[in-house]
Amino acid sequence: MPEQGALIQPVRVFPWRSAAPLLTWLASPWVTLGSIAATAAAAVASVSLGWGATWTLAAPLTVFTVNLAMAAVTHPKLRGDPVLLSFHLALAAFVLLAALGRMTYLKGQVEVTESAKFDAAHAGIENGPWHINRLGETRFFNEGMVIEYDAQRVRGETYNQVRWLDDGGRWRTTVIGDEYPLVINGYRFYTTGNKGFAPVFTWRAKGGAPVSGSVHLPGYPLHEARQETVWNPPAGPSIHIRLAFDEEILDPARPSVFRVPQRPRALVTAEGSRATLLPGETMALVSGELRFDAVSTWMGYSISYDPAKPWLLAALLTATVALAWRLASRWRAEPWMDTPKPEQGA
């Protein structure tokens, strides 16, 4: 059986005691000032030198958060003032939530043809390392759009009808826009100014089954003069497609609405042959035949996901309310100007 002294011994060397000076130093106002100054310097460096903001700010914000937490633990004045304590803890929570947001976020963009289903495989995305990707479970159809333009081709409101599958397995229809997203599984889909024409073709390889495809041309009207691209149908040749039309889609002189051209022509080049096709016309090639069916549209969506966002806002508002409350209380209690003392005998 060990002696009593042997049991007490580990308590004497408990790391807390030796760490106490470090904790006190970490809680000091100098570390607060240093970490705030370092965060400001890191932000300037990120914008002026092009460094990634997340990783540039990570170190000073970590020190700042540790400093806030240590100050809350060790400073009697902070512990004894619930409002001031709330302010500091809310600030620390804000930084931690921002870090959590960076670890779990997803952002991306995708183009979806009118009447077609969203396909996560076609989305360009970037995400934090802890993001659990459920984008593939997201189901919606782009059912067409109305985009208003003012004179001078100033883009106005966008109304995009989408049909989507909710959590209960029911299909629902919603109109979304630049400021009204479609939210499924926490993913927010916003319409963007990026949209354009999508000529629809059917390719039939010799001896093969017909394959239809919509070809997304560069955004309109941003790339108005460059309405062309190359399409590679399955088991088919490389086909250069240019969309031509004579009408004015968006009249700069008056308000208008984005629409498909009424008399489109597809200028097609493939396997050394060239042809101008109207809707419904077919071009014979060595390896098969190509039919120009119609012109549709595509919409570019931005995708964002950040589960920390509402909590970030809550932490920020808590910190702000606590700060305002603390300042107002102090200002009510203490006048800013020293009141002159009454003269003797007054």
């Binding site: 932000a43 914008v47 903001a53 630049d178 931005s302 964002s304």
Partner: peptide, 17 residues
């Protein structure tokens, strides 16, 4: 910014400053 541009913070020059 979240509703207008689909993100609440992007460290663009004005936001950073």
């Amino acid at each position: 910014a979240q509703d207008a541009w689909g993100r609440y913070w992007a460290f663009d020059p004005l936001e950073t400053w």
